[in-house]
Every structure is written in C-alpha cells, then in structure tokens.
Design a protein around this nucleic acid. Structure first.
Lengths: 106, 106
DNA sequence: GGTATAAATAATTATATGTTTATATGAAAA
DNA sequence: TTTTCATATAAACATATAATTATTTATACC
C-alpha cells in the first residue's frame, strides 16, 4: 500500500529548492556535466553533485559517463505534468542576463 | 528585484508537506473549520492551526470568522497553475475509504 | 608508474522545519 | 461574570536539510 499523498509531498519537497530548480532550468536546454553546472550556478562541486544525486534518485534526471565527465540530462518521461511547470524555469540565457550588469540608458 | 526562482522554490516547499497537501485536498471540496480538519486528519489542533497559518500567509487559503469558529477555504485565484495539480489530491471520500478496513473477500 | 582532472562520497556544521506541550486569546453560554 | 468551547500563539524538542570541508574514486595523460 503506497501513500499517494506522501509521494506527492516528497516530489514537491524535492522541487522546493532554489538550487535544484536552477539545475533543472539549465538541464531543460541541454545536458550538462557537473562542472558546467558548478560554473553556471556559482556553487561548489560537492553541492551540485549532491543535488544531482537527489534529482537522479527521484528519476528526474539521468546520468551517463563519458571519459572522466558525467553528463546529466532531464528525464521527464515519468513526470508528464511537470513539463509545463518546468518550462517556466530560467535557463542559461535568462541567467546570464540577470547576472550581467545592464548598462544605464541615457 | 525579486528572485523568481526563489519564489517558486518557496511555494513548492510549502506544498511539499504531507499534512498540508491533505488539508488542501479537503478544502478543495468545501470550506472547513479547524476542528473539522483536526478530526478528519487525526492531528492535533495546534498542528493544524500552524499549517493553516502557513497556507494562509502564502495566499493559498482564506479565513473568515463566524462566531467562535474560523473557517478556511481554498483561494487559488493567484495560482491558476495549481488547480489541475491540486485536483489530484484525495478529498474526504478517498480519505474515509482508505481509513476504513476493507472487508475480506471470500 | 606518477600526476592532474572530474566527480562522488563522508563528515561536519549550521540552519530550517514539523510536532508536541503548554498557555493565551476570544467568543458564546450558563 | 464565570465557565466552556474553538482557535491561536509560544516555547521546547526532535528531525531533516543544505552547504562546507576534507577525502576518495576513477579516468586521462605524461
């Protein structure tokens, strides 16, 4: 007997983290290796790695190894309802814009 | 400047709690006073009250007082995207069914 | 082999969160 | 106005979580 409510809560709790949402936003554009994510989000490697592990164990992302790199990609096959929602997350472009200092207008 | 990502994370974190999901599921059918929720969910009055406070401060529920009772109702006007999602939550009927011991079949 | 790089893991710290227990508010009824 | 009922709030406790630091694994390159 599985508790549907608990399952839903668990998934939502997983999504209820700013760093994980940022990661998912990036992965929506294309797969990335851990180092990319670290650089793009300005966090530490272990931190990114641990968030990725959680996302992976929930089935939200997949990983595959290529040489010494580990690439992560979004896997929403089991979560069709999340597509629309995740599409609202900022990706790389929006992130760069928000980071860059916009020049003052005359 | 507001952090959209942080706002989304905050809302999802709020939803990522089994008890709060259960409350929202009940409120989807009809407004309820705190005592009703306590009884239906089998939790303590302070516990229900505190979860309701969080849901209210996020704007997900409204409250109105009638005599010594305080009624809470769902308010999804500001969260149109949540409707479909919340409609999947179990309400009173599903809850009663899952609580009742189903008789064995011969 | 030895070293460098990429990522994962472990251990620690700090913080946040949910629940319980106890107490307070406030309205209705006696 | 005292008592009762419904709810809110506060404090204490326990648990969970994210981030940091340090270390380990694994692969590539010399």
């Amino acid at each position: 007997m599985h508790d549907k409510l608990a399952d839903m809560a668990e998934l939502l709790k997983l999504l209820g983290d700013r760093m994980r949402l940022a990661i998912l936003g990036l992965l929506q554009e294309r797969e990335l290796c851990v180092g990319d994510i670290v650089e793009l989000l300005g966090t530490s490697q272990p931190n990114a790695s641990q968030h990725l592990r959680k996302l992976k164990s929930a089935g939200l992302v997949r990983e595959y190894k290529r040489g010494q790199w580990v690439y992560y990609s979004l896997n929403l096959n089991d979560f069709p309802d999340l597509r629309i929602f995740l599409s609202q997350l900022p990706g790389r472009k929006e992130r760069l814009i928000s980071l860059a200092e916009l020049p003052d207008r005359k």
